[in-house]
Simulated assay, not measured.
Amino acid sequence: MRVTQKNLLNHRTKTPVPLTAMGFGAASLGNLYRAMTDAQARETVDAALNAGVGYFDTAPFYGLGLSEERIGKALAPHKDVVISTKVGRLLHDCPPAQATPEMYVDVPSRKITFDYTYDGIMRSFASSLNRLGSARPQILLLHDIDAGTHGKEKSDAHLRDLFDRGGYAALSELRENGDIAAIGAGVNDWKICEQLLGEADFDCFLLAGRYTLLEQEALDSFLPLCEARDVGIILGGPYNSGILATGAVAGARYNYEPAPPHILAKVQSIADICAAHNVPLIAAALQFVMGHPAIRSVIPGAANPAEIASNLAVFQTAIPAGLWSDLKSAGLVRADAPCPKE
Protein backbone atom coordinates (compact mmCIF):
# COMPACT_ATOMS: atom_id res chain seq x y z
CA MET A 1 0.00 0.00 0.00
CA ARG A 2 1.29 3.47 -0.89
CA VAL A 3 0.85 6.67 1.06
CA THR A 4 -1.81 9.13 -0.07
CA GLN A 5 -1.31 12.70 -1.25
CA LYS A 6 -2.42 16.14 -0.11
CA ASN A 7 -1.60 19.58 -1.49
CA LEU A 8 -0.03 22.80 -0.34
CA LEU A 9 -0.92 25.92 -2.28
CA ASN A 10 1.20 28.73 -3.60
CA HIS A 11 -1.14 31.49 -2.48
CA ARG A 12 -0.01 33.93 -5.14
CA THR A 13 -0.84 31.62 -8.03
CA LYS A 14 -3.13 29.09 -6.31
CA THR A 15 -0.85 26.43 -7.77
CA PRO A 16 -0.94 23.13 -5.85
CA VAL A 17 2.27 21.66 -4.45
CA PRO A 18 1.67 17.92 -3.95
CA LEU A 19 2.88 16.30 -0.75
CA THR A 20 2.49 12.69 0.23
CA ALA A 21 0.75 12.39 3.59
CA MET A 22 3.86 10.74 4.99
CA GLY A 23 7.11 12.38 4.02
CA PHE A 24 10.75 11.86 4.92
CA GLY A 25 12.64 14.03 7.38
CA ALA A 26 16.26 13.89 6.25
CA ALA A 27 18.12 15.06 9.36
CA SER A 28 19.38 11.50 9.82
CA LEU A 29 21.14 11.71 6.44
CA GLY A 30 23.35 14.40 7.98
CA ASN A 31 24.75 11.84 10.46
CA LEU A 32 22.44 12.85 13.28
CA TYR A 33 23.94 11.37 16.47
CA ARG A 34 25.63 8.59 14.47
CA ALA A 35 27.38 8.28 11.14
CA MET A 36 26.11 6.45 8.07
CA THR A 37 27.82 5.85 4.76
CA ASP A 38 26.74 7.41 1.48
CA ALA A 39 25.55 3.96 0.39
CA GLN A 40 23.41 3.58 3.50
CA ALA A 41 21.91 7.01 2.92
CA ARG A 42 21.04 6.08 -0.67
CA GLU A 43 19.47 2.78 0.46
CA THR A 44 17.30 4.64 2.95
CA VAL A 45 16.08 7.18 0.40
CA ASP A 46 15.44 4.40 -2.13
CA ALA A 47 13.37 2.53 0.46
CA ALA A 48 11.28 5.64 1.04
CA LEU A 49 10.74 6.10 -2.69
CA ASN A 50 9.73 2.46 -3.08
CA ALA A 51 7.21 2.89 -0.26
CA GLY A 52 5.57 5.71 -2.20
CA VAL A 53 7.03 8.63 -0.25
CA GLY A 54 7.16 11.66 -2.53
CA TYR A 55 8.18 14.46 -0.18
CA PHE A 56 11.63 14.94 1.37
CA ASP A 57 12.69 17.67 3.81
CA THR A 58 16.31 18.68 4.32
CA ALA A 59 18.30 21.73 5.47
CA PRO A 60 21.83 23.16 5.42
CA PHE A 61 22.00 22.59 9.18
CA TYR A 62 21.53 18.82 8.83
CA GLY A 63 25.10 17.58 8.84
CA LEU A 64 26.44 20.99 7.83
CA GLY A 65 25.38 20.39 4.24
CA LEU A 66 25.80 16.62 4.18
CA SER A 67 22.06 15.87 4.16
CA GLU A 68 21.45 18.19 1.22
CA GLU A 69 24.33 16.64 -0.70
CA ARG A 70 23.02 13.12 -0.13
CA ILE A 71 19.42 14.09 -0.91
CA GLY A 72 20.59 15.78 -4.10
CA LYS A 73 22.45 12.71 -5.34
CA ALA A 74 19.69 10.27 -4.40
CA LEU A 75 16.81 12.28 -5.85
CA ALA A 76 18.44 13.68 -8.98
CA PRO A 77 16.74 11.07 -11.22
CA HIS A 78 13.34 11.56 -9.56
CA LYS A 79 11.84 14.77 -10.92
CA ASP A 80 8.34 14.02 -9.61
CA VAL A 81 9.22 14.28 -5.91
CA VAL A 82 8.91 17.43 -3.77
CA ILE A 83 11.91 18.67 -1.79
CA SER A 84 11.96 21.34 0.89
CA THR A 85 15.09 22.96 2.24
CA LYS A 86 15.72 25.88 4.53
CA VAL A 87 17.38 29.28 4.81
CA GLY A 88 18.66 31.34 7.73
CA ARG A 89 21.90 29.50 8.44
CA LEU A 90 24.97 30.12 6.31
CA LEU A 91 27.75 27.54 6.25
CA HIS A 92 31.41 28.57 6.14
CA ASP A 93 34.35 26.22 5.59
CA CYS A 94 36.69 26.46 8.56
CA PRO A 95 39.40 24.63 10.53
CA PRO A 96 38.03 21.70 12.58
CA ALA A 97 38.47 23.56 15.88
CA GLN A 98 36.05 26.27 14.70
CA ALA A 99 33.34 23.94 13.34
CA THR A 100 29.84 23.91 14.84
CA PRO A 101 28.43 20.43 14.14
CA GLU A 102 26.27 20.33 17.30
CA MET A 103 24.54 16.92 17.29
CA TYR A 104 25.95 15.75 13.95
CA VAL A 105 29.01 13.51 13.73
CA ASP A 106 31.68 12.96 11.08
CA VAL A 107 30.53 15.92 8.98
CA PRO A 108 32.30 18.60 6.90
CA SER A 109 34.36 21.14 8.84
CA ARG A 110 32.05 24.16 8.66
CA LYS A 111 30.75 26.78 11.03
CA ILE A 112 27.30 28.37 11.12
CA THR A 113 26.25 31.99 11.08
CA PHE A 114 22.62 33.15 11.08
CA ASP A 115 21.44 35.61 8.45
CA TYR A 116 17.80 36.38 7.61
CA THR A 117 18.49 39.47 5.46
CA TYR A 118 17.94 39.66 1.70
CA ASP A 119 21.57 38.81 1.01
CA GLY A 120 21.61 36.03 3.59
CA ILE A 121 18.50 34.36 2.16
CA MET A 122 19.80 34.56 -1.40
CA ARG A 123 23.26 33.27 -0.46
CA SER A 124 21.78 30.41 1.55
CA PHE A 125 19.47 29.43 -1.30
CA ALA A 126 22.29 29.53 -3.86
CA SER A 127 24.47 27.35 -1.64
CA SER A 128 21.65 24.84 -1.19
CA LEU A 129 21.17 24.66 -4.95
CA ASN A 130 24.86 23.90 -5.31
CA ARG A 131 24.71 21.08 -2.77
CA LEU A 132 21.45 19.64 -4.16
CA GLY A 133 22.74 19.64 -7.72
CA SER A 134 20.07 18.81 -10.27
CA ALA A 135 17.54 17.90 -7.57
CA ARG A 136 15.60 21.14 -7.21
CA PRO A 137 13.70 22.23 -4.07
CA GLN A 138 10.10 23.41 -4.43
CA ILE A 139 9.57 24.63 -0.86
CA LEU A 140 11.83 27.10 0.98
CA LEU A 141 11.50 27.48 4.73
CA LEU A 142 12.95 29.98 7.20
CA HIS A 143 14.82 27.82 9.67
CA ASP A 144 14.62 28.33 13.44
CA ILE A 145 13.75 32.01 13.56
CA ASP A 146 12.01 31.52 16.92
CA ALA A 147 13.00 32.74 20.37
CA GLY A 148 13.46 29.17 21.55
CA THR A 149 16.50 28.94 19.29
CA HIS A 150 17.97 32.42 19.69
CA GLY A 151 16.45 34.01 22.78
CA LYS A 152 13.92 36.84 22.46
CA GLU A 153 16.36 39.68 21.79
CA LYS A 154 18.16 37.92 18.96
CA SER A 155 14.93 36.51 17.57
CA ASP A 156 13.46 40.01 17.40
CA ALA A 157 16.59 41.19 15.59
CA HIS A 158 16.26 38.34 13.09
CA LEU A 159 12.63 39.28 12.51
CA ARG A 160 13.76 42.85 11.75
CA ASP A 161 16.25 41.41 9.27
CA LEU A 162 13.41 39.43 7.72
CA PHE A 163 10.90 42.24 7.35
CA ASP A 164 13.02 45.43 7.40
CA ARG A 165 16.21 44.26 5.70
CA GLY A 166 14.80 42.32 2.81
CA GLY A 167 14.66 38.71 3.96
CA TYR A 168 10.99 38.30 3.22
CA ALA A 169 11.41 40.25 -0.02
CA ALA A 170 13.97 37.63 -1.08
CA LEU A 171 11.58 34.79 -0.32
CA SER A 172 8.78 36.54 -2.18
CA GLU A 173 11.04 37.27 -5.15
CA LEU A 174 12.09 33.62 -5.40
CA ARG A 175 8.44 32.58 -5.30
CA GLU A 176 7.34 35.21 -7.83
CA ASN A 177 10.15 34.20 -10.21
CA GLY A 178 9.19 30.54 -10.02
CA ASP A 179 12.46 29.50 -8.41
CA ILE A 180 10.41 28.18 -5.49
CA ALA A 181 6.79 26.99 -5.48
CA ALA A 182 6.01 27.77 -1.83
CA ILE A 183 7.57 29.62 1.12
CA GLY A 184 7.20 29.22 4.85
CA ALA A 185 9.12 28.52 8.05
CA GLY A 186 10.45 25.45 9.80
CA VAL A 187 10.36 25.98 13.56
CA ASN A 188 9.60 24.38 16.92
CA ASP A 189 7.07 27.00 18.06
CA TRP A 190 3.58 27.59 16.66
CA LYS A 191 3.45 31.09 18.17
CA ILE A 192 6.19 32.40 15.87
CA CYS A 193 4.29 30.90 12.93
CA GLU A 194 1.18 32.81 13.97
CA GLN A 195 3.26 35.97 14.30
CA LEU A 196 4.72 35.49 10.82
CA LEU A 197 1.24 35.01 9.36
CA GLY A 198 0.25 38.32 10.90
CA GLU A 199 3.09 40.05 9.07
CA ALA A 200 3.12 38.55 5.58
CA ASP A 201 1.88 35.95 3.13
CA PHE A 202 3.22 32.43 3.73
CA ASP A 203 2.11 29.19 2.11
CA CYS A 204 3.11 26.64 4.74
CA PHE A 205 4.91 25.92 7.98
CA LEU A 206 6.95 22.95 9.11
CA LEU A 207 6.00 22.70 12.77
CA ALA A 208 8.16 20.33 14.81
CA GLY A 209 6.65 18.71 17.88
CA ARG A 210 4.04 21.30 18.81
CA TYR A 211 0.93 19.40 17.75
CA THR A 212 0.98 15.84 19.06
CA LEU A 213 -0.93 13.47 21.31
CA LEU A 214 0.73 15.34 24.18
CA GLU A 215 0.49 18.95 22.93
CA GLN A 216 -2.57 20.57 21.39
CA GLU A 217 -2.30 24.25 22.36
CA ALA A 218 -1.98 25.10 18.67
CA LEU A 219 -5.74 24.44 18.45
CA ASP A 220 -6.41 27.65 20.39
CA SER A 221 -5.73 30.02 17.51
CA PHE A 222 -2.95 28.96 15.15
CA LEU A 223 -4.40 25.87 13.49
CA PRO A 224 -7.84 27.48 13.01
CA LEU A 225 -6.07 30.43 11.37
CA CYS A 226 -4.19 28.08 9.05
CA GLU A 227 -7.40 26.30 8.16
CA ALA A 228 -9.20 29.57 7.43
CA ARG A 229 -6.35 30.80 5.20
CA ASP A 230 -5.58 27.40 3.66
CA VAL A 231 -2.02 27.46 4.97
CA GLY A 232 -0.61 23.94 4.99
CA ILE A 233 1.22 22.42 7.94
CA ILE A 234 3.99 19.87 7.62
CA LEU A 235 4.25 18.12 10.98
CA GLY A 236 7.65 17.11 12.25
CA GLY A 237 8.45 15.52 15.60
CA PRO A 238 5.17 13.59 16.02
CA TYR A 239 6.72 11.62 18.89
CA ASN A 240 7.82 14.64 20.95
CA SER A 241 11.45 13.59 20.32
CA GLY A 242 10.88 10.00 21.38
CA ILE A 243 8.51 9.33 24.23
CA LEU A 244 5.45 8.72 22.03
CA ALA A 245 7.45 6.08 20.18
CA THR A 246 9.13 4.38 23.12
CA GLY A 247 6.39 4.80 25.71
CA ALA A 248 6.98 5.74 29.34
CA VAL A 249 10.19 3.77 29.73
CA ALA A 250 13.27 4.59 31.76
CA GLY A 251 15.27 7.27 29.99
CA ALA A 252 12.39 8.32 27.74
CA ARG A 253 12.93 11.77 26.22
CA TYR A 254 10.32 14.49 25.85
CA ASN A 255 11.25 17.46 23.66
CA TYR A 256 14.94 16.50 23.79
CA GLU A 257 15.06 16.36 27.59
CA PRO A 258 14.45 13.54 30.10
CA ALA A 259 10.68 13.21 30.46
CA PRO A 260 9.34 14.64 33.75
CA PRO A 261 7.07 12.50 35.97
CA HIS A 262 3.78 14.11 34.87
CA ILE A 263 4.60 13.47 31.20
CA LEU A 264 5.58 9.88 31.93
CA ALA A 265 2.27 9.38 33.73
CA LYS A 266 0.24 10.90 30.88
CA VAL A 267 2.01 8.83 28.26
CA GLN A 268 1.38 5.68 30.27
CA SER A 269 -2.32 6.53 30.48
CA ILE A 270 -2.47 7.08 26.72
CA ALA A 271 -0.59 3.82 26.13
CA ASP A 272 -3.01 1.90 28.37
CA ILE A 273 -6.00 3.06 26.31
CA CYS A 274 -4.15 2.25 23.10
CA ALA A 275 -3.42 -1.24 24.42
CA ALA A 276 -7.10 -1.74 25.23
CA HIS A 277 -7.81 -1.17 21.53
CA ASN A 278 -4.83 -3.30 20.39
CA VAL A 279 -3.21 -0.24 18.84
CA PRO A 280 0.50 0.51 19.31
CA LEU A 281 1.12 3.89 20.95
CA ILE A 282 3.48 4.87 18.13
CA ALA A 283 0.74 4.28 15.53
CA ALA A 284 -1.73 6.42 17.42
CA ALA A 285 0.87 9.19 17.73
CA LEU A 286 1.79 9.16 14.05
CA GLN A 287 -1.80 9.04 12.78
CA PHE A 288 -3.40 11.45 15.26
CA VAL A 289 -1.80 14.52 13.72
CA MET A 290 -3.27 13.77 10.30
CA GLY A 291 -6.77 14.23 11.67
CA HIS A 292 -6.49 18.00 11.46
CA PRO A 293 -7.37 19.36 8.01
CA ALA A 294 -4.55 21.93 8.05
CA ILE A 295 -1.90 19.21 8.30
CA ARG A 296 -0.76 18.05 4.89
CA SER A 297 2.14 15.75 5.72
CA VAL A 298 3.90 14.18 8.68
CA ILE A 299 7.64 13.55 8.39
CA PRO A 300 9.02 10.99 10.81
CA GLY A 301 12.74 10.49 10.52
CA ALA A 302 14.41 7.27 9.42
CA ALA A 303 18.03 6.18 9.34
CA ASN A 304 17.71 2.91 7.43
CA PRO A 305 15.27 0.93 5.26
CA ALA A 306 13.94 -0.99 8.27
CA GLU A 307 12.85 2.27 9.89
CA ILE A 308 11.16 3.32 6.64
CA ALA A 309 9.20 0.05 6.67
CA SER A 310 8.32 0.55 10.33
CA ASN A 311 7.11 4.10 9.72
CA LEU A 312 4.92 2.92 6.86
CA ALA A 313 3.49 0.08 8.92
CA VAL A 314 2.50 2.27 11.85
CA PHE A 315 1.13 4.92 9.47
CA GLN A 316 -1.17 2.30 7.96
CA THR A 317 -2.19 0.53 11.16
CA ALA A 318 -5.98 0.30 11.44
CA ILE A 319 -7.18 2.44 14.36
CA PRO A 320 -10.81 2.25 15.54
CA ALA A 321 -12.66 5.51 16.13
CA GLY A 322 -13.32 4.33 19.67
CA LEU A 323 -9.68 4.90 20.56
CA TRP A 324 -9.94 8.61 19.89
CA SER A 325 -13.24 8.95 21.75
CA ASP A 326 -11.83 7.08 24.75
CA LEU A 327 -8.77 9.34 24.84
CA LYS A 328 -11.05 12.37 24.79
CA SER A 329 -13.35 10.94 27.46
CA ALA A 330 -10.33 10.37 29.69
CA GLY A 331 -9.23 13.98 29.21
CA LEU A 332 -5.99 12.88 27.53
CA VAL A 333 -6.78 14.53 24.20
CA ARG A 334 -8.65 17.79 23.80
CA ALA A 335 -12.33 17.44 22.99
CA ASP A 336 -11.99 19.83 20.04
CA ALA A 337 -9.07 17.96 18.44
CA PRO A 338 -10.06 16.61 15.00
CA CYS A 339 -9.19 12.93 14.81
CA PRO A 340 -8.68 10.61 11.86
CA LYS A 341 -11.65 8.65 10.65
CA GLU A 342 -11.67 4.92 11.32
Results as ranks from 00 to 15, higher is better:
Q216Y: 05
M122E: 13
S134H: 10
R131Q: 00
C274T: 11
P18D: 08
A303N: 09
P320L: 00
F24A: 11
V289L: 03
A74P: 05
A248C: 12
E68N: 06
A306W: 09
K86Y: 10
H78D: 05
A181G: 03
P280Q: 07
D57L: 12
E153A: 15
V314I: 15
F315P: 04
Y168N: 01
R123P: 00
V333R: 02
N304Y: 01
Y116M: 10
S84I: 02
E342P: 01
K6C: 07
T100Y: 09
S241C: 14
G322L: 00
Y33G: 06
M36C: 09
A275F: 00
L75F: 06
L332T: 06
R296Q: 10
D179S: 13
L132Y: 09
G232M: 14
K154R: 07
Q216W: 09
K152V: 09
A147C: 03
L207M: 14
N240R: 00
G72A: 11
P305V: 01
L214E: 12
N311E: 14
L32R: 03
N304E: 08
S325E: 12
T317V: 06
H150L: 15
S325K: 03
P300N: 08
S67Q: 05
P18N: 04
A51C: 07
E215Y: 12
E217F: 04
V81G: 14
L159H: 13
L159P: 10
L90R: 06
E176K: 08
C339A: 14
G322T: 02
A285T: 08
A99K: 02
G232I: 10
T85D: 12
R123D: 00
L196F: 13
F222Q: 06
S172M: 06
A330E: 10
I183Y: 06
I295G: 04
A181C: 03
V333T: 07
M103C: 01
E69D: 13
A147N: 03
A321N: 03
L207Y: 04
V314F: 12
I121P: 04
I183W: 10
